[in-house]
Amino acid sequence: ASVAVIAAGTQGNIFATSALRSMRFLQILRMVRMDRRGGTWKLLGSVVYAHSKELITAWYIGFLVLIFASFLVYLAEKDANSDFSSYADSLWWGTITLTTIGYGDKTPHTWLGRVLAAGFALLGISFFALPAGILGSGFALKVQEQHRQKHFEKRRMPAANLIQAAWRLYSTDMSRAYLTATWYYYDSILPSFRELALLFEHVQRARNGGLRPLEVRRAPVPDGAPSRYPPVATCHRPGSTSFCPGESSRMGIKDRIRMGSSQRRTGPSKQHLAPPTMPTSPSSEQVGEATSPTKVQKSWSFNDRTRFRASLRLKPRTSAEDAPSEEVAEEKSYQCELTVDDIMPAVKTVIRSIRILKFLVAKRKFKETLRPYDVKDVIEQYSAGHLDMLGRIKSLQTRVDQIVGRGPGDRKAREKGDKGPSDAEVVDEISMMGRVVKVEKQVQSIEHKLDLLLGFYSRCLRSGTSASLGAVQVPLFDPDITSDYHSPVDHEDISVSAQTLSISRSVSTNMD
């Protein structure tokens, strides 16, 4: 405001104040949320940038038409019409005319000016109207692209899951042992070998009828009888010197917790746990005396209480009078009846079946994303299906024409109403129809010849004498029936064969 007042002088105070007050009108834009329509302006900018070359070309040609039209109309009207006294007036008329506004304040009066105005109007309006069409088509394409992008975003994750499931299904095939990355992934998420051994031990116990592997080994086996189970490696608790092959000598807290839970599941009659010990102070733990958990001091820290809870689970003690015997301790020893080589084939089979199920689920979810969402998608899918159906029908028609023997030239002739090819031409065609016709002709010829021969033979049998045999009239074959199959017997006289037959029969009768 200060700059405006200084620039306008003393009389500019009122002007500056009114100008600043008129800017209050811009507050109405906040009512229509114009300040939060950044996406709309961004869309407009992207459309203009995408079609910038077309817009520049249309505007450039339109500007050239405007300059030439205004100049030529000015030359034609400057002497006869006072409205075109300057080139600026003519340029104003050209702008209003070519933009199809047409105020009518300035019009050419001479015939030359009117002809020039009409010609440049028809030429220039087309170029001035091009930017509107370019922007409209650009907006339509952009909206369609955003629509497809939205659908693509919805299909991206199911497609990625389907590709991942397909690759993992491919890589978990037993015949592709060189693909090891997927197996490394499952090695990292699978439970430890100790848990798998416990699982298979329970399965084997159920197969043995509820007997433990130790009891199965204690059962008497006759001499020479084959053992029911192959000899396997035996594993004891981590306190002993022997372990399962492939295990580490260090046992983690999870393994100890699972070991304690498995020992508690063996039965309360074979294992008696004394009350857990509780320390009397955060600094020292008295293991010899058993106290109640309700006497825990409230001033303990979080670490002390955590250690106390761990001691409740991981440090059970047995009383002296209830101490288990050596046999019970041997039964409680952890027996590992299986090795990694025995378990891994079954584990890989389970993983393979899981990968198949996940692949089928991913495939079903991806197919669900291909379903249409709204009416536009339904129409688009219907149009695509219609085009596909037309293509299939056209391909089927082409194959039928190839089989029947109607080529493209014959199809055009039928469409024009011309006469089709004759039967002889159809026979000569190298097509399925021509071959079928040729075979039918040959079969008819053979059938006719057989009928003639059978009739001749029956007449010979009825006559009974050589004289009557020679008097029999043998009809000749019709050459038209034989089609294109020409037998060497067709052109010979059958009477010669009949005479030869009669001579042979007379000779045979004389010999008798």
Rank of each mutant, 00 (worst) to 15 (best):
G391S: 12
D388V: 02
T339S: 10
S192T: 07
A320D: 15
K416R: 13
S188N: 06
W167G: 00
M389T: 13
Y185H: 06
F366S: 02
D187Y: 08
K367T: 04
G464V: 04
R364G: 12
V426G: 10
I351S: 11
S240G: 06
V378D: 13
A177P: 12
T277S: 05
D512V: 03
V232F: 14
Y185C: 07
I481L: 11
R228L: 06
E492V: 14
H202Q: 12
S497A: 12
V472M: 05
V375L: 04
S466P: 04
E331G: 05
P245S: 07
G209V: 06
S284R: 11
H448Y: 06
K367M: 02
P316T: 10
L198F: 10
K441N: 10
R307G: 10
D173V: 01
D423N: 11
G246W: 05
K270E: 15
L450R: 02
E195G: 11
P293T: 11
Q442H: 08
M344R: 12
G210V: 07
G260V: 15
A274T: 03
A346G: 11
R462L: 11
S333G: 06
H386Q: 08
K367E: 02
G405V: 02
Y373F: 15
M278V: 13
M389R: 02
A310S: 07
R435P: 12
E327Q: 09
P479A: 04
L338R: 13
M344T: 13
S192A: 12
F243V: 14
V474A: 11
H272L: 14
N208Y: 13
G417S: 08
K254E: 10
K298Q: 15
S463P: 02
P276S: 15
Y485C: 13
A274G: 15
Y485S: 04
L179R: 11
C235S: 13
D304H: 13
R250L: 04
S466T: 15
D451G: 14
R352C: 05
V350D: 01
P316H: 01
I494F: 14
P324H: 09
K315Q: 13
A320V: 15
V340A: 10
E368D: 02
K298E: 15
Q204P: 08
C336G: 12
E289G: 05
K270N: 11
D255E: 14
I257N: 12
M278T: 07
R218L: 07
S483F: 04
H448Q: 11
R411W: 02
S495A: 14
P226L: 10
I446V: 12
S188R: 15
L198H: 13
